[in-house]
Design a protein around this nucleic acid. Structure first.
Length: 436
DNA sequence: TCTCCGATTAGAC
DNA sequence: CTAACGGTCTAATCGGAGA
């Protein structure tokens, strides 16, 4: 009887958002069960900022995105353990989780490394299925997840937050199970900043219009909202009103631009070290291009000094050039990148970051040949072999030209990022599998 | 005046 | 010991240049 009353009509869409709890930290804990009660954080590239926190670390006041040096005392005071991010591990764990989730529905959108939308419309016993999802992922991967369900993606996201926040929910919350007054009560208790698509700036602007809660946004005057905040906010409001505006995208669209950039572990003054770094970025960017079967028509290279050191001279050059032919050939793009670094480089500056952007991306099938330019012969077989080897034996196994040969001993300069606290690649490298 | 394009803004994770 | 603050990606919007 009770479930009968709560079960929404079958035509109501049941979109689930499955989100892994504290994903990076949870991945680390799978292989370090001894850390289960330790406050743990994972750091961004270069060990710069905190990007994942265990509940214990959150309780100690560590903020998302906070620079690690600001909270480092907690290491001594409260035994916080900070780990460098181990993307090979996280990507592999993510693939396992996503593949398990795909078993529950034909309609999955992998939204990020730790989140999937699933269309569970028409499923009876939805509560049981939701707990089954949570239980299966937990048992097969060791990663804890929460499930939020609603009639639109925006409401599924909110439902997921409710599932995460309230222990009573046991990790599953279905917005569709509420009656109208329960919905109003719930949305009135949640700050508008929690809504998907509403960040810090928009929160402030909405507050100025006396929109403080999700319910305020849901009931706000639509023409005013549209005029002052644009189409995106209007869509968000419609989604809160249970009209689905944001569709599931099941096939990942090809990227329109590909950027590979990195801050260096230390300041760099040597042009050869910069070339070395940039050639690795080109190599990674071209690999992504080939993975989605595209060519790029424009390459842009940039260098930059450390913007946090205002007392030092600043220089942030950036050049973009059209490639004579669309390509995804690492060697070919590298010759251009190298030339651009040489052209931009000025001595007397300490460089902290560099990067490469490939844009005007087109599918390889649409290749437009320049009638006058002698055709560049892409090293297709070479690139294919390179991708295959790197896939099988790990990224960086086979590299191109001078990439990676510029060793620290030549100048004492090491541009590689700082990663002093990285855990082993438990799942992707046999040499790093620990003895059990 | 209209359109195009690059730069800027805002957001997600 | 010190100094130390991430990387990618998209869509919307704005403002100037050129047609």
């Amino acid at each position: 009887m009770q479930t009968q009353a709560l079960t929404p009509p079958l035509h109501v869409k049941q979109l689930a958002l499955v989100d892994c709890n504290n994903f990076y930290v949870s991945c680390e804990r799978v292989f370090r069960p001894d850390l289960i009660h330790t406050p743990v954080v994972a750091l961004s590239n270069n060990d710069g900022c905190v990007i994942s926190r265990s509940n214990e670390a959150k309780a100690l006041g560590v903020k998302m995105g906070q620079p690690w040096f600001e909270v480092k005392e907690l290491e001594r005071e409260h035994g916080v353990l900070a780990l460098s991010s181990n993307y090979a591990l996280y990507a592999d764990m993510s693939n396992r989780v996503m593949s398990i989730l795909s078993q529950f529905t034909p309609t999955q959108e992998v939204y990020s490394i730790d989140e999937s939308f699933l269309d569970l419309s028409g499923i009876r016993e939805l509560r049981d299925v939701s707990y089954k999802i949570k239980q299966t992922v937990g048992q097969w991967t060791g990663i804890p997840v929460c499930v939020g369900i609603g009639p639109t993606k925006t409401l599924a996201k909110l439902a997921n937050q409710v599932a995460k926040k309230h222990p009573k929910s046991k990790g599953v919350f279905n917005f569709n199970d509420l009656n109208e007054s329960q919905k109003d009560a719930l949305l009135s208790k949640i700050e508008v900043s929690q809504v998907w698509g509403v960040g810090r700036r928009l929160t402030n602007r909405l507050n100025a219009y006396k929109v403080y809660t999700v319910q305020d946004l849901k009931l706000a005057d639509t023409p005013t909202l549209r005029a002052e905040f644009g189409v995106v906010m209007e869509k968000t409001q419609r989604e809160l009103r249970e009209l689905s505006c944001i569709d599931m995208t099941q096939v990942e669209p090809a990227k329109k631009q590909i950027v590979c950039s990195r801050s260096f572990g230390q300041m760099i003054t040597d042009v050869n070290a910069l070339k070395d770094a940039v050639s690795l970025f080109v190599s990674n960017a071209c690999q992504k291009l080939r993975a989605q079967q595209s060519h790029a028509c424009i390459i842009q290279v940039f260098l930059s000094t450390n913007r946090f050191r205002a007392e030092l001279p600043q220089y942030n050059p950036c050049i973009s050039v059209p490639l004579p032919q669309p390509t995804n050939d690492t060697v070919y793009v590298n010759t251009w990148a190298n030339y651009l670094v040489e052209k931009m480089f000025k001595s007397g500056y300490s460089y902290k970051k560099a990067g490469v952007m490939l844009s005007e991306i087109t599918p390889t099938t649409h290749m437009q040949m320049d009638m006058w330019e002698p055709a560049h012969q892409p090293n297709e077989r070479l690139m294919g072999a390179l991708d295959e080897l790197n896939k099988r034996y790990g990224r960086g196994t086979v590299t191109v030209s001078t990439q990676g040969t510029y060793l620290d001993k030549q100048s004492g300069q090491n541009w590689h990022m700082k990663q002093t606290r990285k855990s082993p690649n438990y799942t992707t490298n046999w040499h790093e599998v620990p003895y059990v």
